[in-house]
Design a protein around this nucleic acid. Structure first.
Lengths: 212, 212
DNA sequence: TAGATTGTTAATCGATTAACAATC
DNA sequence: TAGATTGTTAATCGATTAACAATC
């Protein structure tokens, strides 16, 4: 359906989904681009442009049917598909992701957790037994895994990425404080929590000098 | 020093810091915008433009002195300052942040953790005793806190934001799956992990149809 | 000096906003 | 029908890239 979709648009899609879900839960049936824009802090124009990257889901003179638009955007995001995930690194972040309650109901299903620390291997987190990292290759040979979550130190990020890619992973969600390189056909998203905290730190300093 | 700095530039700053640190650790002394661009996947032009938002740190015919530029960008980001942080919500993410090893050495210091679950209050995480959420207001009256980390359910995010703002917090690092509103003088950064996973899901689906 | 590379101005590109005809 | 609001084209704005004089 969609042709080229810019990164700027892609990054806004989950926000649309969240706001539409909230509206749906509050019992609303319909919304105009103007009203949605007011709530989200976007212009009505931008919302219509964004949505029309994927086709005309609205109705002139009426607006958008909330549940239908939400459904469409969920579909576009691919969140109704079944995603098999594994987590590599059972440290703070690996554990948080393993236990994160929001995923399963949306089709993101953790089927394995790996670590190379002997004290952790065999322990359970989020109902899963932590496996020895050296068994990762075999695991990937045997099971279909869609998403690899990298929650390891920076120095291990690229070599593990290479292994995942070699074994046919489709996407990598990278929490290591290091940018990873994947071939074009393997999607990746970097989270970089520490970067995000530094951005906050910057804004705390510089906002004061802002004069607009 | 700096006038208006666009969000696009701000978001790249932590990346510069990371790459420069890595170069420094590997013993490099000097780098040109061209070479740095190659490593980071940016154009040399963009790097020079970005850096010159904050002043001329380079030398013609030579490039940039790595340790000096790193230091400058660290300064700009404000990461050498002392930041007192509190964490609100001792669930998966709150715990991960409390235990996150990368912060203290860079001046981000967690001085309190709060939760409203009686089973959690009194327990220890990251060397801190979890406090009853209802004591948050008093705590903020007594101590100077710079950053509040929100790791709570969506429904509680805005009311806790309001409390933090009222008590004079300077920045909010928001992990709740909900956009928060703060007055202009209070900085905030949303992390929205679930959004980021959905972006990955989208890219896994649509990259294949991409024809460039 | 010659070569390299910055700092900065100008050109281009892409994303956002405005406008308005189509139509519910 | 009249009013509202979309889908879409055109105008504007801002960010990225290119170019080049300045200078180390």
């Amino acid at each position: 359906m969609a042709g080229y979709v810019s990164d700027a648009v892609i990054r806004r899609l989950p926000g649309y989904y969240r706001y539409l879900q909230e509206l749906e839960e509050s019992g609303e049936k319909q919304i105009s681009s103007q009203e949605l824009g007011k709530r989200m802090g976007l212009t009505a124009s931008q919302i219509r442009q964004d949505i029309n990257c994927f086709g005309g889901f609205g109705r002139q003179g009426y607006g958008y049917e909330i549940s239908k638009l939400k459904e469409h955007i969920g579909e576009i995001l691919g969140i109704y598909k079944d995603h098999k995930m594994i987590i590599i690194g059972a440290g703070n972040i690996g554990q948080a992701v393993a236990n994160y309650a929001n995923f399963p109901k949306e089709g993101f299903d953790v089927i394995g957790v790996f670590d190379n620390n002997p004290n952790k291997v065999g322990q359970k987190i989020g109902g899963m037994t932590i496996r020895e990292l050296s068994t990762l290759g075999d695991f990937l040979d045997q099971k279909k895994v869609d998403i690899g979550v990298l929650a390891v130190p920076a120095k291990d990020a690229q070599s593990l990425t290479n292994l995942l890619v070699e074994k046919g992973i489709k996407g990598i969600w990278n929490f290591a404080p290091k940018d990873i390189k994947t071939p074009e056909e393997v999607a990746s998203v970097n989270v970089h929590l520490s970067d995000s905290l530094q951005v906050l730190s910057f804004k705390m300093t510089y906002d004061k000098e802002d004069d607009k």
